[in-house]
């Protein structure tokens, strides 16, 4: 039932969509810096710097302090969509707060046999 003067109710569930992109100020972004779901990032600026940044940027820098994390892990830990995290991480790369490494593109040729052997050994040793 509606009452006069009451705002129109939302016709959909806004939760999972609106909030994540509010933190990127509405930018969905192109994938700047060729960020992949397993691109690893590490924070390189001192902790003191974090206070001046928006909360989400600070959260990312704190969780990537001294250890590399993937875009996927940041997304899971923050409860934000991958696309939103890519935008925020891109900003932090551009501002020099984060350094990153993306996986090699699939066009880079033959599979790396040494890498496969290392992964095989690692899984065997689990």
């Amino acid at each position: 039932m509606k009452y006069a003067g009451e705002p129109e109710p939302f016709e959909f569930e806004p939760g999972p969509l609106i909030r994540p992109f509010a933190v990127t100020r509405g930018r969905a972004g192109k994938d700047l810096h060729e960020l992949d779901i397993i691109t690893l990032v590490v924070a390189v600026r001192p902790e003191a710097d974090v206070a001046a940044l928006d909360r989400e940027y600070g959260d990312i820098l704190r969780m990537c302090h001294q250890r590399p994390l993937s875009i996927a892990e940041i997304s899971a830990k923050m409860g934000l969509l991958l696309a939103a995290v890519k935008v925020l991480v891109s900003d932090l790369i551009s501002s020099g707060h984060l350094i990153f490494r993306s996986p090699p593109p699939p066009t880079s040729g033959r599979p790396d046999i040494k890498l496969l052997q290392a992964v095989l050994d690692g899984v065997r040793n689990l």
Partner: peptide
């Protein structure tokens, strides 16, 4: 060497899936 995108100073660690 592997032509991946990344910061030049980020070395020594890589992710695979």
């Amino acid at each position: 060497s592997d032509r991946s995108a990344g910061s030049p100073e980020m070395t020594g660690v890589r992710a695979v899936k």
